[in-house]
Design a protein around this nucleic acid. Structure first.
Length: 505
RNA sequence: GGCCGGUUGGUCAAGAGGUUAAGACACCGCCCUUUCACGGCGGUAUCGCGGGUUCAAUUCCCGCACCGGUCACCA
């Protein structure tokens, strides 16, 4: 299996929004494919007709596109190995199922769900396997004639794999090494159900990976227990020599408490677990998304990439291109990672700093529009350049810099108490007169004149500046004060001073 | 419960027999400063426990504990 072109797939089932853990799996597959000059396939695993959710497929594509994870083929991308939706591949699976049956590697079982339920209730740890299958209603215990009669009469049945007991099955995992499981602990898994004429995940997955010439299966750790079954299926189908290599990724865990990160944790703890906002078509419930929360896609990618993998050094800010170069399965960790939302915010902060002002201003404009503010982009860019280093999200820009767009309506009580002195209004009144004489309201000039005036009169610099800031901003925050006066302009600066003097007396 | 996987600071983690056990997030303190941030500096680990192997073990082996996953006609 030397020179096969690397081909990997991301194979979600369209049962709802794509979980952030799934996004990471898709990302790792993408990085691995690109690094090796291979292909990434998007395959939709919709063999469970019961759980299909409309809109989920589009959601998956939109989310991954937003993040810059590009597919080479698959649903929505074309390709020569289609169709890529499992529900459209019924006939393909059927022939392999039949092949297994005729080779004696699988059999037909008529036990109804309720009969099985009964068994499970009656016998502790009941498992449909070599030790029990001869007590069940299947083509192993029934004659061929009886079997055919039952089928002809329209009885529903399933096809089960026939697993021989007592054999150690070796799964070679690229991340975990050899994992050995005894076949006796495996059950005769259902491969196919006559009810909807669809295979189950296991069968469809192996057939498709083989037919689509997948070379590496990179998926979540929750699949590790069924990996031996998959190895056996490759053998039963005669495809062992082209069996893909496996890599089982560690899980994303809840930030606190136990268990893997779930859909509900996000809303409970106040952060998104989905890339895009998702509205459940049935319940109408809305779950927040990273995009709508103001995350930059590069930040999400970077954050996710480092959750379960690291480059082996202390580099943390990595672009997609760098990730493609550096990624390796060997550096993936084996243990689950608790999801640290705070770190995610930090990544976004880093990427905001890296973005140029024009881009950020363009992202900020809609937020301003929402507040009913219309200003030219050059002014927004100026504000952004002054304020971006202090926010994690574009949206926060408004909280931090509203005073650039609207005069303070009130003055923060604590700040007033601390910064507004008895002589403040007298001094600021004087300051107004000084400012009136300033023609060039640029940062340096205004600062020089104001500081000169303060020095001349032996005033306390801090007292004046803090009261000045209070008048302009309404509280004790913001960038260098003369950057604010420059942006506001002479008229507005003086108006704000007058207003503060009036109100605070 | 059976089976499988994992276990380095609150979190993400580097490390691969001999190190003062990196770095980042968060937190705390200090510095910078006219405010708030940014930035800078500093602080917090007897590497889950118990046995081995070895001159030497966080690193190798075994047992235990704990955490996680999985045991469907779901993926």
């Amino acid at each position: 299996m030397s020179q096969r072109k690397v081909r990997v797939r991301f194979a979600p089932s369209p049962t709802g929004a794509l979980h952030i853990g799934g996004v990471r799996t898709a990302l790792y597959n993408y990085l691995f494919a690109k690094q090796n000059g291979g292909d990434l396939i998007l395959r939709i695993e919709d063999t469970d007709s019961q759980r299909f959710v409309p809109g989920a497929e589009d959601y998956i594509i939109e989310a991954l596109t937003w993040l810059g994870i590009k597919f080479d083929e698959g649903v929505g991308f074309g390709g020569n190995y289609g169709p890529y939706r499992q529900s459209e591949r019924k006939e393909i699976y059927k022939q392999y199922v039949d092949q297994l049956i005729s080779n004696g590697l699988a059999y037909i079982a008529f036990d109804t769900p309720s009969e099985l339920e009964e068994k499970r209730n009656a016998i502790a740890n009941f498992q449909y396997d070599a030790s029990t299958r001869l007590q069940m209603r299947n083509s192993l215990t029934l004659s061929a004639e009886e079997t055919n009669t039952l089928i002809a009469a329209g009885n529903q049945y399933v096809v089960r794999i026939k697993i021989e007991p007592n054999e150690n099955i070796v799964v070679n995992d690229l991340i975990r090494g050899e994992v050995i499981i005894n076949s006796s602990v495996l059950d005769d898994k259902v491969l196919y159900k006559s009810a909807d004429q669809l295979p189950t995940y296991h069968m469809a997955n192996i057939v498709d990976d083989h037919l689509m010439e997948v070379t590496h299966v990179i998926r979540g750790e929750e699949w590790l227990p069924s990996a031996p079954l998959h190895v056996l299926l490759y053998r039963y189908l005669g495809w062992t020599d082209t069996m893909p290599a496996f890599a089982h990724l560690p899980l994303l865990l809840k930030p606190e408490g136990n268990g893997k990160l779930s859909k509900r944790d996000g809303d409970r703890l106040g952060f998104p677990v989905f890339p895009l906002e998702w509205k459940d078509p049935v319940s109408g419930d809305i779950s927040s998304g990273y995009r709508e929360s103001g995350y930059l896609p590069e930040a999400v990618v970077n954050f996710l990439a480092l959750l379960g993998w690291n480059p082996g050094n202390d580099q943390e800010i990595l672009t997609m291109d760098e990730l493609v170069k550096l990624f390796s399965l060997e550096h993936c960790s084996k243990s689950g990672a608790k999801f640290d939302y705070e770190k995610g915010k930090w990544f976004n902060h880093q990427y905001i700093q890296k973005k140029d002002n024009a881009t950020l201003a363009a992202l900020f404009q809609p937020v301003l529009a929402e507040k009913g503010i219309e200003v030219c982009s050059s002014y927004v860019e100026k504000v952004v350049s002054l304020m971006k280093e202090r926010v994690n999200f574009v949206k926060e820009l408004w909280d931090q810099s509203a005073f650039f767009f609207v005069a303070p309506l009130s003055y923060d009580e604590k700040t007033v108490k601390k910064r507004w002195k008895d002589n403040s209004s007298a001094q600021l009144t004087e300051l107004i007169e000084v400012l009136r004489t300033v023609d060039d309201f640029g940062v340096e000039n205004t600062e020089e004149i104001v500081k000169g005036w303060i020095e001349q009169n032996q005033y306390h610099l801090g007292n004046i500046m803090n009261a000045f800031r209070l008048a302009l901003v309404g509280e004790s925050k913001g960038p260098h004060i003369f950057n604010i006066t420059e942006a506001l302009g002479k008229e507005e600066t003086i108006a704000r001073l007058q207003r503060a003097i009036e109100i605070l007396k």
